[in-house]
Design a protein around this nucleic acid. Structure first.
Lengths: 342, 342
DNA sequence: TATTAACACGAAAACGGTTTCGTAACCTTT
DNA sequence: AAAGGTTACGAAACCGTTTTCGTGTTAATA
């Protein structure tokens, strides 16, 4: 087994000091050409690579960034993650991922683990439980220690830090407007029990679009489904909702709701998009391969991730102590497919 | 900004030595009760947490594991990752993810970055390019340095290390047998251009099942589609394949092929499962929400990830130098849904 | 020839911990 | 009272780097 070689080994072997070796490898002016060549040749031969940990300790910079997300088996989050990883890697950073599993405690524990020197900064989306509890002490602590933090998608106003979000409200407005413009009158909003603030934003956009089109808001056109256990949603309930209210369009706050409801609607004899149009939030795998293909609001996760990483790394690498925070908005766009008329 | 407090700060403040503080915090017998209480109280008050990097340097153990996968926006890989992360986290390890993007060079670069002290071991699935080149020097180097390595799913025989795979061949056999047993005669195999060794294994199982049922293998029942760009597959080609060969069942080596072909088959008037049965490999999101729901081979990614992490951590934490490697096999199972008759 | 500058290198501190070992001060024993 | 044993702590080495500063040797200058 070839153990990793260190400066000390090289120094001993070449009968020079550690400092000389270190400088020679950095091509320092201080060291003679001869010595440099000798050292560099030796280092190359034995494939010397400096130890990252030692450098981290010295520099107080790890070149690691911590990412904490509620779930990893989730199309949107992985998309964002891909953007983060891509940008970070290009800048020489590695990414440590922790999954909070929508749990407040895990989020806290993960942050604490990483905050003790393992990373240079955090990128995170809050867990549902954290948002429900409205408790952000752990974020507070981290920022107080001067560790840069970028929040994306699931954010909070309680913490002063950089943020990246999509224009949820506007996107919902656009989607609803698209439905209205195509002649739809009874537009359903299919949403979650609303502790997730994204759902709220989307509802606002929906309401505004109705208002601007002089369509009275009808509470009975709102269907609230449980987030998560979609299998438990009885088809009868959904079917009844569609038929009783003579729904002719549905705006769904997530892809699964859209696909599920579209399936139920189809089964109950409704034609899509002739009888009912569907638009879902989050353009994921399901939207692309459903039948008909689902029109969806694309959240451009990768772009979001790249931007978040860019913002974080800029903060990490900036010397200045000034505390100025930005909230960047990624423009969500409507991708029209077979589930709507155009 | 409250900077992180160190042993040195505590020592200075309490007018004792650094060693005393260190020992006091570890509840060492050497230190008097009084001093211990004093130090511990102070540490708690100022929320002292040891610096991970310093500990890593001292211990030569980072408590990080490196995961290198070809893609992250990929249901199976994220599922495995979830298993890895879950197990690792429970054991106090963090996970650094790098995405090779199916590129040999990125895989090499990522490994080298991490191999210089950042991690205690690797878990990885080979990139397609690496498998095509059949070049594993980077893996060789890492194992020679004594860094534990666990390969999963996309593995190679060239490297001696722990491995976790599913019983691809057997699972394909079972799937094909299931189709045969339900009375199907013209069973298509829909597979990739075959540099991916998993596809080959699956083909073998298919062939064996045919043989055991005394069904002659018919080359024209094999459809090879390009991996990746599924959108570019013309529907005509697929439709023609189904009709010309009077296919009554299809075993697809991945979910996308299955969903795509099922969609085409449906469009061309074939009823599923009455006229044609479908079974896909990889039980992902699409299978659960397609219409009809797709019967699929579940690869139990999370279990695979947990096992890989377990094997790795055992190696990492074992003192012994002995080189014994295992290849664990996760049993894939057939999940019967609406696309097959039972 | 004496002084100074340039050169080439090494010693040592620092990053933040852990751990081994040495020792002063007190206590117990004979 | 001398010897031995505890107790409670500190000094220092170590992990692998980087970097500052000091210094001996040689070459250039006055």
């Amino acid at each position: 087994m070839k153990r990793k070689i260190t400066l000390k080994h090289i120094a001993r072997e070449l009968e020079v000091s550690i400092s000389t070796v270190s400088k020679a490898l950095k091509n320092s002016e201080e060291i003679s050409k001869d010595t440099k060549e000798k050292v560099q040749a030796f280092a190359k031969l034995y494939n010397y690579k400096p130890n990252n940990i030692a450098i981290s300790l010295k520099n107080k910079r790890t070149k690691n960034i911590g990412v904490i997300i509620p779930d990893i088996v989730h199309h949107f989050f992985t998309t964002v993650f891909r953007g983060i990883e891509k940008y970070a890697n290009a800048k020489g950073y590695n990414v440590i991922v922790c999954v909070s599993d929508e749990s407040f405690d895990k989020e806290v524990i993960n942050m604490e683990m990483l905050a003790n020197g393992s990373i240079d900064g955090f990128i995170m989306a809050l867990s549902a439980e954290t948002q429900a509890k409205n408790d952000y002490k752990h974020l507070q602590e981290v920022t107080e220690q001067g560790i840069p933090l970028v929040l994306f998608d699931r954010i909070t106003d309680e913490i002063a830090c950089d943020k990246v979000v999509i224009n949820d409200k506007e996107a919902a407005y656009l989607a609803a407007k698209n439905l209205i413009d195509s002649g739809r009158k009874k537009i359903a909003l299919i949403t979650t029990d609303d502790y997730l603030n994204v759902s709220l934003k989307r509802a606002e956009g929906y309401l505004d679009a109705l208002k601007d089109a002089n369509i009275a808001f009808d509470e009975s056109l709102v269907l609230k489904l449980p987030y998560g256990a979609i299998e438990n949603i009885t088809e009868q309930r959904v079917e009844h909702f569609f038929n009783a209210n003579r729904i002719d369009a549905a705006l769904c706050v997530n892809e699964l709701f859209a696909i599920h409801c579209m399936g139920v609607a189809k089964k109950s004899g409704l034609r899509i998009p002739e009888d009912v149009s569907f638009i879902g939030f989050t353009d994921g795998i399901l939207s692309k391969y459903s039948n008909p293909k689902l029109s969806a609001i694309a959240q451009h996760g990768q772009q979001m991730g790249e931007l978040a990483a860019k913002m974080l790394i800029e903060k990490v690498e900036s010397e200045s102590e000034e505390e100025t925070y930005k909230t960047e908005i990624i423009k969500a766009t409507l991708i029209s497919r077979g589930s709507t008329i155009n």
